[in-house]
Write a protein that binds this DNA or RNA. Structure first.
Length: 561
RNA sequence: GCGCCUGUAGCUCAGUUGGAUAGAGCAUCUGCCUUCUAAGCAGGGUGUCGGGAGUUCGAAUCUCUCCAGGCGCGCCA
């Protein structure tokens, strides 16, 4: 546990003890100590830590909050808490001030842990899977996929440093209806290339990229599939196109900094009979019935609005059936937690998916679905409807070409998944120069620059500062920086608990701001050896923290800019 | 019609799960480079937290209602 965390935990416990002691003395009456908060007040003048405990006890104790605060403080033991003073303020807050000497412990802690600083172990090695993007392999990756990629990848990294054993997975939708449409679209493009007039399938994929795919197919196999039966032609086209599309998706995601552990094929679930087997289990449990020639799942038993078809009257399993089998497969692989990142347009699917897991006997809460709102693309002042079928969308590739990987990722990571982001590509291009990501990266480059120069001047920046040297770091700028650094393990624990990586993007932005302020107010490479050693220790620590967080976010930390 | 999400500064967005005087960035204005990177710093103003009602010591946060936008409600995925 980090220094700061243990200080807070300790004070929290002492408060509980004080309250219980007051109760034992008969000075306070209450049933149970309420869950109070001990937090950093927004206003500096309110001290380092504040608690609302007294106010929460008013109802039970039937006394004025400030009176209760008095009683609590009378029983409060400050020994070994770093508390230097306290006061009762406002409606009944208890504000604590800490002896700033506690900050001297921060740098040694960071330097000792280095790349690992910030890691916590709330996961205790539990296996977690994060499945994200899982775009249909029938086209290119678009802005929505970009958001999902940034979010999913960072979440996976975050959980990993929070002590979970994480696997990243991409579910390949290489079966079902859309593959049939895909085949028909490819076939139409294929025949077109040989000058045949063909009607393009209504539900087909109009993207131009399919034309290129077909051209490459022809370059390889010529007209070999022109005069044979349609089924074989389609099969060959689909096999070729899928392979190519999946490879392209993989390559694009890798360029975006996303690497998967598992690429899971939907088709494999059909081929191996796993879907059949899963349906059989549900049938044996009595959750399936037949109506109008189709098989239905009684999903209403588990909170769904209506029952769902899982096998169509034509005998084909629906996407839902495959998805149930897929998620059963996930749990069978031993994940204690399974996280899916879906676009908000799939939210109707959430309840029935969880319901299906419950039907299979799994804890539906082990399946967490993070919905992200769609990305609204603005171009020329107008909303551009994104659709694979219409073929009109800005691709992830174009996004990276225009604004760069780091800026694109950071853009998404600064936002809560629940917010509908508007992405104006023209504006993004124009603003890519002052993207907040550069603010953070610049801080990192500056830190590296200081360390470089220190070496050039013959100073060894890797000396670990002694306590008395660290005591010299007592300016407000230095204290703020130290406090922020000390926060990291807590920030990571909270972000992981809430599965909200965007908190870390905010954190790193705040940290960069504090560093830039420090940089402009104090020099690191000063003649005084003790002060210089202490500040170099601070510089190294801040650099570790920036680099560690940027690594989680999948953003590079350049040494020079 | 029903369900989910959203509405915070001119723009893009945060807001530690109910705390004290609501914050950043962009834009705009004023200062700061013979000293570790000016992609930076310091300072100036900007708010009916969509409207209304309620819950309580205390609400941007919880409840209800209304308004606006997005997305769902297929034998599509």
């Amino acid at each position: 546990m980090s220094i700061y965390q243990s200080i807070k935990d300790n004070i929290y416990r002492r408060l509980e003890e004080a309250v219980n002691e007051a109760k034992a003395c008969g000075e306070l009456v209450f049933e149970e100590c309420p869950a109070f908060v001990l937090e950093e007040p927004r206003e500096r003048q309110h001290g380092d830590l504040a608690t609302n405990l007294a106010m929460l006890l008013t109802k039970q104790a039937r006394r004025a909050p400030r009176e209760i605060a008095e009683i609590i403080l009378k029983h409060f033991n400050t020994e070994n808490t770093w508390i230097s003073s306290w006061e009762i303020a406002g409606p009944g807050f208890i504000n604590f001030r800490l002896n700033p000497a506690w900050l001297q412990g921060v740098i040694p802690e960071v330097l000792a842990q280095g790349d690992k600083y910030g890691s916590v172990n709330i996961g205790r090695g539990q296996k977690v899977q994060v499945e994200f993007v899982s775009a249909n392999p029938t086209g290119l990756l678009h802005m929505g996929n970009a958001r999902g990629a940034a979010l999913g990848d960072s979440l996976a990294s975050l959980l990993s440093v929070a002590g979970y054993q994480v696997e990243r997975e991409f579910y390949i939708n290489d079966a079902g209806n859309q593959i049939i449409n895909f085949a028909l679209s490819l076939e139409a493009r294929y025949l077109e290339q040989f000058g045949q007039e063909v009607e393009f399938p209504e539900a087909g994929y109009h993207g131009e990229d399919l034309i290129d795919t077909v051209k490459r197919f022809i370059a390889r196999d010529g007209d070999a599939y022109l005069h044979i039966e349609a089924e074989k032609r389609r099969e060959a086209l689909v096999r070729f196109a899928l392979e190519e599309k999946i490879a392209a998706i993989k390559e694009t995601l890798e360029d975006f900094g996303v690497y998967y552990d598992v690429w899971f094929s939907e088709k494999s679930l059909h081929d191996s009979g796993y879907i059949q087997e899963t349906m059989q289990i549900l049938k044996e449990k009595g959750y399936i019935y037949e109506q109008e020639g189709a098989l239905w799942l009684r999903s209403t038993l588990f909170g769904d609005e209506k029952d769902e078809v899982i096998v169509r009257s034509n005998g084909l399993a629906t996407y839902f059936a495959a998805d149930i089998a897929y998620h059963r497969h996930k749990f069978e692989r031993g994940f204690s937690k399974v996280i899916n990142i879906w676009g908000a347009d799939h939210h109707g699917h959430v309840a029935r998916m969880k319901g299906a897991m419950q039907a299979l006997g799994y804890d539906p809460d082990s399946l967490q679905i993070i919905l992200m709102q769609l990305v609204r693309l603005i171009q020329g002042g107008e909303v551009v409807r994104m659709s694979k079928r219409s073929g009109r969308y800005i691709t992830l590739r174009e996004l990276m070409d225009e604004v760069g990987k780091d800026a694109a990722r950071f853009f998404f990571l600064l936002r809560d998944p629940d917010s509908t982001v508007e992405f104006d590509l023209d504006l993004a291009k124009q603003e890519s120069q002052d993207n907040p990501v550069y603010y953070v990266q610049y801080a990192h480059a500056r830190l590296c620059s200081i360390l470089r120069q220190a070496r050039e001047l013959g100073y060894d920046p890797d000396i670990n500062p002694k306590q008395e040297q660290l005591a010299l770091l007592n300016s407000p700028e230095e204290r703020d920086l130290l406090k922020k650094i000390a926060d990291l393990p807590g920030e990571i624990a909270l972000a992981a608990k809430l599965t909200e990586p965007h908190r870390l993007a905010r954190y790193v932005l705040d940290l960069a701001a504090l560093f830039h302020t420090f940089y402009n107010s104090q020099r690191v490479l000063v003649p005084d050896e003790d002060l210089r050693t202490a500040r170099l220790g601070l510089v190294r620590s801040v650099r570790y923290v920036l680099a560690n967080v940027l690594r989680i976010l999948g953003v590079s930390a350049p040494e020079k800019m």
